[in-house]
């Protein structure tokens, strides 16, 4: 139960920050809620608008109304897109997930395999080579990897389309996949280092455990020791991190989506920010916060699948 406290606190903090942002930022909240139209309103229209948004009521009533609205799906209209916020999110979220989930799974797979091997091998030079290469890759900014991939594979070689901005207009599924390849590759390259480092470190400490030597005394070949026994143990510390990372992915990868013009959540967040589109910004931040909480719950709930010691039952 105590584990839940920080995440409920997070949800509450995000909701409250969302509520406060347009009210404490310089300028009048109406400017943010209506954009440029706000300047053209007559005094009477202004008063009406204030009433319509509930801004004439005391602050605590506004707060309650805001929370209730959030819970009941009244998330307001996006200024930038001129459509309900929920509609924009419903359009962008699946695109981001379609990019992010496969990319993360591939990155986790590669990072795990390389990290497990590098932590297990007795050949120090091979380990140093692979680890340095991954460390270097991990240090490169994601947007820079995106720029280089775009320049080389889209512009110079012409294998992929240069921009994904016409993504929605493109009818063929195959074309959509083609447009997603480079952004996905960027995400894989930019995030596999994280899994690699965690798994490699965990593998190192598993290798110090008694049972590993005993497995060799059983006559198991090294690959069975590594993949069947050492890796599942080394993977436990990485697991929670990976699930939480997936949760954070609901916010989209801002820089990667921006470089490729990929119309996902991250790009929407960036556009909302540039346009000071508060309703949309609030909506996206709420989604990110809730996804984080869900991911945490999922990590907590599924961890015992991998670790029998946490499944309860009598212990000696």
């Amino acid at each position: 139960m105590a584990r839940w406290v920080p995440y409920c606190a997070l949800a509450w903090a995000v909701v409250t920050v969302n509520f406060a942002l347009p009210r404490v930022a310089p300028g009048h909240p109406l400017d943010y809620l209506l954009g440029e139209e706000a300047a053209r309103l007559s005094p009477r229209q202004r008063a009406e608008a204030l009433r319509a948004f509930g801004l004439d009521r005391p602050l605590h009533e506004q707060y309650i109304a805001y929370v209730v609205g959030l819970a009941t799906g009244r998330w307001g209209r996006s200024v930038r897109f001129g459509r309900p916020v929920l509609e924009v999110i419903a359009e962008r979220l699946p695109r981001t997930l379609a990019l992010f989930i496969p990319a993360t799974l591939i990155a986790v797979f590669l990072g795990t395999v390389l990290g497990a091997w590098a932590g297990y091998t007795t050949r120090a030079r091979w380990d140093a080579g692979v680890s340095s290469a991954v460390l270097l890759l991990d240090a490169m900014p994601g947007f820079w990897i995106a720029m280089v991939l775009l320049s080389v594979f889209a512009v110079e070689l012409g294998w992929f389309p240069v921009s994904g901005s016409s993504f929605a207009a493109s009818p063929q599924p195959w074309e959509q996949v083609r447009r997603a390849v480079l952004p996905a590759a960027t995400l894989v390259l930019a995030t596999l280092g994280r899994t690699f480092l965690v798994v490699r470190g965990a593998m190192r400490s598993v290798c110090q455990e008694e049972f590993l030597w005993a497995l060799e005394a059983k006559g198991l070949p090294p690959r069975a020791v590594l993949w069947r026994h050492a890796l599942p143990n080394a993977w436990l510390p990485a697991y929670t991190q990976i699930v939480l990372h997936l949760g954070a992915g609901a916010g989209g990868a801002v820089v990667v989506e921006t470089v490729f013009g990929y119309p996902g959540m991250g790009r929407a967040l960036y556009e909302a920010l540039l346009a000071r589109d508060y309703p949309l910004l609030q909506g996206i931040l709420s989604v990110v916060a809730f996804a984080t909480i869900v991911a945490n719950a999922a990590a907590d709930a599924t961890y015992p699948w991998f670790d029998p010691r946490l499944r309860g039952g009598p212990a000696a």
């Binding site: 005993a214 059983k218 006559g219």
Partner: peptide, 28 residues
């Protein structure tokens, strides 16, 4: 190495000093 593995636990089997802790914790 392969022949050596075939000997272990088949021709010469060990009860290790740390037998109490020498189990993979994730398998029955």
């Amino acid at each position: 190495a392969k022949r050596a593995r075939q000997l272990r636990c088949r021709s010469i089997a060990l009860l290790p000093q740390t037998a109490l802790h020498a189990w993979d914790p994730l398998r029955p």
